[in-house]
Design a protein around this nucleic acid. Structure first.
Lengths: 242, 242
DNA sequence: TCACATTTGTCCGTATGTATC
DNA sequence: AGATACATACGGACAAATGTG
């Protein structure tokens, strides 16, 4: 019964649940471009009239679309459901849940992160252009100015890796990276600032060297720096774990 | 404003939406083990009384937990919300959505899949044991019997890769693999059976050789076979794409 | 600043569908 | 087959948020 494992990916045909039918219909309308990004969907009351169902069913359908990253919802007179893509963040959120519920261990996270960031570097050496490098340089510059003011640059340090994924031009890796970073970002709030500055400075320095290695097409050096980088990031997590 | 991009991962503090508060509280109860897998949550009516909120808020909270992969819901007298982990499938579902909405290209998928399956092989050479190999052999055996009956063995061919991810002992890669396979599984329904048997047979043969290479600790050969495998799978997709 | 309109958010009462005993 | 205990769905009402004149 191999195929049964896909039971949640391939939705069973159930007309019983009205809100699922509504959700799928709306999703289809978004896919085929009837509703475009930035555009407002009709209000709950309007949708209820249009689909000839109760407002409750509409609400639950919209809840699904919201959690799936297709729309955002705001109250108020010019509010309502708006087509807005947040799928990356939603996937990262679910991944964070998986981590929190102990399905993903810290060791697993570090091991797979090393492999994935290495893949990203491989792709960067093929796909990245000058603009991508400039974005990376800007990031390091921002981190430096923050550090000079005596503040931690954790957000910038994490953003660096997101920029790397973007430079690889692979959306798959952008999604995976976002998910991994979400875990580290979640830890961020629990970090003790004591001694953090020095680590943050060190990571920023590694990032700077990495940019140099990429620009100089020195792949092996870039990979070695990445290993150091991830180990340092891991130290921060394990040092703060109770 | 780098940190703003995490706006959907780190939920904003909003007491305005009751159902989110309820959803978070229940999620926390699941995380800390108050509710364990297989256990039933109280019914909607009971939860409404316990939290002192309306049933609608409870329903939307349960909808969130259902879509996040924490619970399943069944009607009927012994039904109700049950703690059941389907997070992997839910992530895969969102990833499939991302693919369908053209955020992930087929080329991107193939390139990243090659890199990721190579990582999985690397981990297998470190972590896999005899039991994992036996599971892989069973899978190929099942595929063979299906092929001998003149039926396609697509499910088994895809399952092979899921077994590989499991043998790597990395939940991160299990999740990523599940997501990638979901796309191929989705295509499955659109495949023309014409000429498919031969391709399915060829893939099964590659899988068999791959097991041999893993057992013999021949990493380079295993990687080469994997490349062939993925190219073949990709051919099936592109051949059927309109 | 204030009143107003629009839209989401929330609760309640009720009815129906569904699965189990 | 009937009773029971659930989720599912509808309609009505009001509160809260938010933008507008």
């Amino acid at each position: 019964m191999v195929a049964e494992d896909y039971g949640s990916v391939i939705e069973p045909v159930r007309t019983t649940r009205t809100f699922e039918e509504v959700s799928n219909r709306l999703k289809e309308l978004i896919f085929n471009g009837t509703f475009k990004p930035g555009q407002r969907l009709p209000s709950e009351a309007s949708l209820a009239r249009l689909f000839r169902v109760g407002r409750q069913s509409i609400r639950e359908a919209l809840r699904i679309l919201e959690l799936s990253g297709f729309i955002t919802i705001r109250a108020g007179v010019r509010g309502g459901p708006v087509i807005e893509d947040t799928v990356h963040n939603k996937i990262a959120g679910l991944f964070l849940d998986a981590f929190k519920s102990d399905k993903v261990s810290l060791k697993d996270l570090v091991v797979s992160r090393k492999a994935i960031e290495k893949d990203v570097l491989d792709l960067i050496f093929v796909n990245a252009n000058r603009g991508d490098l400039n974005l990376l340089r800007d990031n390091v510059r921002q981190a430096r100015t923050k550090l000079e003011k005596g503040r931690l640059a954790i957000e910038e340090n994490l953003e660096f890796h997101r920029l790397l994924a973007r430079a690889s031009k692979s959306h798959v890796f952008m999604i995976v990276m976002e998910s991994i970073l979400a875990v580290f970002f979640d830890f961020r709030s629990k970090l003790s600032a004591v001694g953090g500055i020095e680590r943050s400075r060190e990571i920023t320095r590694l990032h700077e060297e990495m940019i140099g290695a990429i620009a100089a097409k020195k792949k092996r050096k870039a990979v070695a720096l990445m290993e150091l980088n991830i180990d340092k990031a891991n130290e921060i997590l394990t040092a703060n774990a109770t």
